[in-house]
Design a protein around this nucleic acid. Structure first.
Lengths: 217, 217
DNA sequence: AATCATATCAAACGATCGTTTTAATGTCAA
DNA sequence: TTGACATTAAAACGATCGTTTGATATGATT
């Protein structure tokens, strides 16, 4: 193995472990020593390869988060195309499927949304990256897709709020797993996650009305 | 002013400033020196009055967060009673009103949900407090209220998921204000917050279907 | 084989962290 | 007024933080 390849492996390990730790504990709660220890390399490696802790954090988003988000988006577009329709039902179904199941492993998805939620609550430079390279093009395309299938009277803002509300549930049920488990008593096994997808799709499409018609007062 | 009263004022200032900083930056990103500086007291005051940084954090939840949550719950119950009905519509309306407007000032509410969301994503001892003293009784009562108004076939789990989904939106739109502003282009002024309440209520009740009927394919 | 560039390493840097210690100050009862 | 007590204040503690340094080892180049 060449020198260059070994160096690349070290960078890979650092990115992987850094992402896992940042997602799990947040930027401030993770030390460079902790990262380099689990990545089995020297303390100075972070500064040597990335130029510092902050830049490693940003590189996690550049080299890991953004590409993964693009994979999810691609999966969504293909799923929507496969349905042959851009109705709200089809879009919602495809959205929920892509973001809750999609091309990611469960562990990957958990990390993904943890990082995202942290940035949402406390935006840093990384959020600029995500907003510009991932969110903006996605929302632009999605709004265009949906506009043709929804009533013309529906303003752009309402459209955005609808999409954001679906996101809210997706992020929440991934971010707050521990709490959700505690409240519902359900572990995040395959069966529960399937029910979760079903619920979010149904709720997004029909709200409370979908899972039970309102009794007359 | 007596000695005791002055001491209480110091504790009050510490609790207030600590809560604001913890909500804004998260536990790890806030130092005891920062808290004591903005609270205009000595560095040692945190240890003297609360026994340490961790215990101050817990006291923020005990003395500030839990009582505030109980105020919100009281407001919800009264709002529901005023409607004279426990239909899903009435409950949703009362929920959204209590949690998005309710008895709290905007700043208070923002802090409240920031702290909550941080605990959801990374539960500490404080989450135990919240789960036991606030969430458990609330969900218990809410489930009981809703069960009579919803179809009998609707399982307890689905009921929980519906409530959690409303929570998800409430938390999200409070926690991710910066991002929401960035995406929608809307500032969190009074008008936008009113539209937000309207949206969440409508979305919770009718999903996407409520804000625009699906076009035939 | 000799030279150079690169990656890794142990060690130490100054800064800041939460906490403790010790002294000074103010308050209230006796 | 004096002694006891509670609170504040300044200073220092050891630990850990992110980063830098200089030495060493390793692979590539001439």
């Amino acid at each position: 193995m060449t020198q260059k390849e070994k160096s690349e492996l070290t960078k890979e390990r650092l990115l992987n472990e850094a992402e896992a730790l940042f997602a799990q504990k947040g930027y401030d709660a993770v030390s460079v020593r902790e990262i380099t220890t689990v990545a089995r390399c020297n303390l100075a490696a972070v500064n040597y390869h990335f130029g510092g802790k902050r830049k490693l954090y940003l590189e996690v988003f550049r080299a890991r988060w953004v590409p993964r988000a693009e994979r999810v988006q691609k999966h969504f577009r293909e799923g929507l195309a496969a349905q042959g329709s851009a109705s709200p039902t089809a879009v919602t179904q495809a959205l929920a499927e892509a973001f809750l199941v999609g091309p990611l492993s469960d562990e990957e998805r958990h990390r993904h949304y943890q990082l995202m939620t942290r940035e949402l609550g406390q935006p840093t430079e990384a959020f600029e990256l995500v907003a510009e390279q991932v969110m903006r093009p996605f929302f632009k395309g999605l709004a265009k897709t949906l506009r043709t299938a929804m009533p013309e009277g529906l303003g752009k803002e309402r459209l955005m709020l609808n999409i954001l509300s679906i996101f809210a549930m997706v992020l929440y049920f991934n971010f707050a797993r521990v709490a959700v488990t505690r409240i519902t008593g359900c572990e995040y096994d395959l069966a529960f996650k399937e029910r979760l997808v079903e619920h979010i799709v149904e709720f997004s499409l029909n709200g409370l009305g979908g899972s039970g018609k309102e009794k007359p007062e």
